[in-house]
Structure formats: C-alpha cells, structure tokens
C-alpha cells in the first residue's frame, strides 16, 4: 500500500519534470528564434558587403527572398523555424553556403565531446573525492592545501590557464602540442600512433578546463561535507558505535553528494556546447570555435543551431539532475 503510493508519486514526479523539460525546450526554441531577429545587421548585407560594388540591390533582395527574410517575422518565419527545427532540420549556413547547419554541428561535436567530456570525467573523479575528503578532515593539513589550491584554480579563468599551459609545456618545454586536435602528419598513421597523437593534443586543453572544474567541485563538495559533519545524525552515528570510516561511508557520503550531484549534472550540459575560450586558445575544432566563427560572420542559422543545442543540453542536464536527485534524496521523491 505504502509502496504503491510511493511508486505512484514517483512516476507522477518523473512525468511532471519531463513535461516541464519539453515545455522549456519549446520556449528555448521560440526565444532562440526571436533573439536572432532582434540583433541589428542584415545577413544578406553582411555577406555580400565585400562585393557591394558588383552586387545590385536586386541581387541582395533575391538573396533575402531565398533565405525567407522578406516574409513577416511572426507568424511566418517563426512557424517555419519551429516546424523545420523539430523535424531536425536546422537550415543552411549563411556563410558556408549550401552546408547544412546540422552537418556543421555534427562535424564539430566529437572534438568538443572528447575535450570537455574527458575534462569533466577527470574533474568529477578528482574534484569530488578531494572535496569530500577535505571536508571530512576539515582544518587538517590536507584540507588547507586542497582548499587553498582549489580556490585559486576556481577563480582563474580557464583561457588564461590555457595560455600559461601552452607557454610552459608547448612553447618553452616543447613537450606537448599547443594547438589543434591532431598533427596532419599523423592523420594517416596506423591506429596506435593516431590515438597517441590525438591524446597528446588533448592533454593541455583538457587540463585548462579540468583544473578550473576541479577547483569548483572541490569547493562545493568540501562545503557540502563540512555541513554534513556538523549534522545531528552524525552524532547519532557516532553514538551508535560506528567507526569513522563507517560514519563516512554510511551516513556522510550520500548526504554530502546531494549538492554536488546538482552541480555536476548541470555542468554535464556544457559537454556538447563546448568551451568557447579554451577552444579559441587551442584552435580546437569544436562547437566553441564554430560558435565564434558564426558570431563573426553573423551566421544566424549556425548560431541558432548552436544555441538550440546548448538549450537542449541544459534542459536534458536539468532533467537528469532532477531524476538523479530523486534517487539520492527520498525527500524529493
């Protein structure tokens, strides 16, 4: 009886958060559409500006027409945008004429996922563990070192960290490549060499992103654990005769994880959106660089695609956060 009630409540909650996610996504799409229409500057003018002398007003007008820019914003352009978008068609790039936005994004996605994904995995493993340990042994020597370093890393901009890493390990020491995701010479090598080359290119940009994330995770995990160790139920656990290890594993760990899980799963949303500044520093061919290129060229469809991807990943990350939190904390089930 109690079990089925509980089960019913849980599935209702899951339905509720899923519905909310879909609604949010819809709003993101509309906002995304409107945002790009209010930015000043006409893409047709922009694109043909260099050739202004040889291009007639009629030609610009015909270009505008072919992009659908002559029709009214609402409802024509909006409805057109929504219906094509939800069919998976993100339109064609203004700049790389004839190239589908979806293809451009898919082309850049693997590099970004490799970069930010690896950085996240490393940061989660190191940052959360270090933070939990520092909070558990707060006030100790390890805590002082770990939290001091983390605060410094957390407050350092990743692109600056990236530039320092390049200067030291690439320019000065020459140990690791400082830009790009592979060496042209290794592009046709056999698998082990090819993998090694890719991995070597990953090291510095991954570090630039991961170090800041580690700092952030340590700070949050440590704070969460510091709160948990002063909770009354930890005194209860101690009174019950648990060893310090049992107190940590059975009572403190899961409670300390709650705020951390929120942050981590929300951050996972950024895996696909890339790291704009770090990708720029390392000339990393990912979504971040694509975004910068699209901004510079007023490439509305590409920017829209990238923003939609960002919105989608944040919404999905939120959904995952809600569901994961429900598993960890019975109070929100």
């Amino acid at each position: 009886m109690a079990g089925s009630l509980q089960g019913g409540r849980t599935s209702r909650r899951i339905g509720h958060v899923t519905f909310r996610a879909i609604l949010t996504l819809f709003m993101v799409a509309i906002l995304n559409f409107l945002l790009f229409r209010v930015i000043p500057g006409d893409p047709a003018d922009m694109l043909l500006a260099g050739a202004r002398n040889s291009v007639s007003a009629e030609q610009i007008e015909s270009q505008r027409k072919s992009w659908g820019l002559d029709r009214p914003l609402i409802p024509d352009q909006l409805l057109n945008y929504l219906s094509t978008t939800f069919q998976g068609d993100l339109g064609y790039s203004f700049k790389f004429s004839g190239r589908r936005v979806a293809d451009l994004i898919l082309e850049r996605l693997p590099a970004t996922i490799a970069l930010v994904g690896v950085a996240q995995v490393i940061a989660i493993l190191c940052g959360v563990m270090l933070g939990i340990y520092a909070g558990w042994r707060r006030g100790g020597a390890i805590d002082h070192v770990v939290s001091g370093t983390s605060l410094a890393l957390y407050s350092t901009p990743p692109f600056w960290l990236g530039m320092v890493l390049v200067l030291v390990f690439s320019t000065a020491l020459g140990w690791l490549p400082g830009y790009g995701s592979y060496s042209p010479s290794a592009a046709t090598a056999d698998l082990p060499d090819w993998l090694g080359d890719r991995a070597r290119h990953l090291v510095l940009p991954v570090l630039a992103i991961a170090l800041g994330l580690i700092g952030q995770y340590v700070v949050v995990a440590r704070a969460a654990m510091s709160d948990v160790v002063t909770e009354d139920y930890m005194v209860t656990a101690r009174a019950k005769g648990l060893t310090s290890g049992q107190m940590l594993m059975r009572h403190a760990f899961r409670n300390a994880l709650l705020p951390v899980v929120t942050l981590v799963t929300l951050n996972l949303g950024y895996i696909v959106s890339g790291a704009i500044t770090v990708e720029s520093v390392f000339a990393w061919p990912g979504i971040g660089s694509l975004t910068v290129e699209a901004v510079n060229g007023r490439d509305y469809p590409v920017l829209q695609g990238v923003f939609l991807l960002l919105g989608l990943s944040i919404v999905v990350a939120n959904l995952v956060t809600d569901l994961a939190y429900g598993i960890l904390d019975p109070r929100v089930r």
Partner: peptide, 14 residues
C-alpha cells in the same frame, strides 16, 4: 544510549 533532542535532525534523512 542517547535519545537526542531534535529527532528530525538526529535521524539520517536518506
């Protein structure tokens, strides 16, 4: 053994 003051906080919520 001890019965603590605030049973809400003395029991582990998870």
């Amino acid at each position: 053994s001890v019965v603590f003051q605030g049973a809400m906080n003395a029991l582990n919520p998870v």
